[in-house]
Amino acid sequence: MSLPCHISGPASAPPILFLHGGGVSGWMWEPVVDRLSDRFRCLVPDLPGHGRLACERFSFAGAVAALAELIRTAAGGPVHVVGLSLGAQTALHLIASHPHLVGRAVVSGALTRPLPGIGPYRVLLRLTFPLAHREWMIRANARQLGIPREYLAQFRADTLQTTAEGLEAVVAENMAFRLPDALRTAPVPLLALVGGRELGLLTTCARDLARNLPSARAYVVPGAGHTWCLDRPDLFAAVVAAHVADEPVPPELVPLV
């Protein structure tokens, strides 16, 4: 599967691959990429089941295989990887399967423990899916996810392209996620982030990453929600640039111990 990918920045600059969250697509990285594309080669694909690939069925295995091919063809070698939510989980699978293709990594809001009740939740999704395309529900979901008003049009477009089967596949993969065993020996320096306003479980998951990966650190971003790359892009871009350069992260971040 070939992934549609927006590429910007100098061809000779260090490449960074940005992986979006579930239910949205590559546009969610626009404000961060705008702040980094003068110094880095930014690769922003749409993952299967999202955006321009809404007709495809998402799986971590399929996404990782397509990403590995994208890295080889578009970057010609290792890239740094940044992922949020579902994109963060995908980044972890990519590191576990192809550590030689990843230089350094930043993941934010990663769920790393499986959640119970996938079966009943899938039934509920099928029953309620007809409401998902109603304007009032689109706006409610955007507010719940922390999508700023200026990105509502992009969020609406992605939502209207989503199928019930596609959404079900994304949710099932997300809820069943477990840390791949290969991560425990992966040498990739990893920065695990969680917003201070996110669920406590995601803070626990960030701490899990710092404890289980040999080259990982975890930080809380005070006051940040799940999609803080959209409403705090200056800080997000500064964090990415610092980690890629192996420099101290901005002082706003609080270490998780």
Rank of each mutant, 00 (worst) to 15 (best):
A96R: 06
S37K: 14
C55I: 09
H93A: 09
T162C: 14
Q89L: 11
E252G: 04
L47A: 14
D231G: 04
L70S: 11
G51I: 12
D46I: 11
H98D: 00
P180K: 04
L3A: 01
E247Y: 01
L209S: 08
G83I: 08
L111S: 14
R39D: 13
L256T: 00
G196L: 07
G51F: 13
F40A: 09
A238N: 02
I118G: 04
I7Y: 03
R232D: 15
R143E: 15
L202C: 06
S97T: 13
A164M: 15
A241S: 13
P31H: 08
P31N: 07
T73C: 09
E135S: 13
V171Y: 14
L84D: 07
G196M: 01
G21N: 02
D46W: 15
P48L: 05
P180D: 02
R156E: 15
L111M: 10
A224P: 00
W136L: 14
A66R: 07
N212D: 15
D34K: 12
T128R: 12
E252V: 10
F60H: 14
A242N: 00
Y121G: 01
W29M: 02
A237T: 05
S59N: 11
A75S: 14
P187T: 02
P78Q: 03
R113D: 04
E69Y: 04
H20Q: 13
E150W: 14
Q89V: 06
C55Q: 15
P233S: 01
P250A: 08
V249S: 00
H98C: 11
L19G: 03
V79Y: 10
V33I: 12
F60Q: 06
P116H: 00
L125K: 09
D38Y: 10
S59H: 09
V107I: 11
V81S: 05
Q89P: 11
E150V: 10
G196P: 01
F40R: 12
E30K: 12
D231K: 07
P10H: 03
L167R: 11
A63G: 08
V33A: 13
A164T: 13
R207C: 12
V171W: 13
D158P: 11
A242T: 03
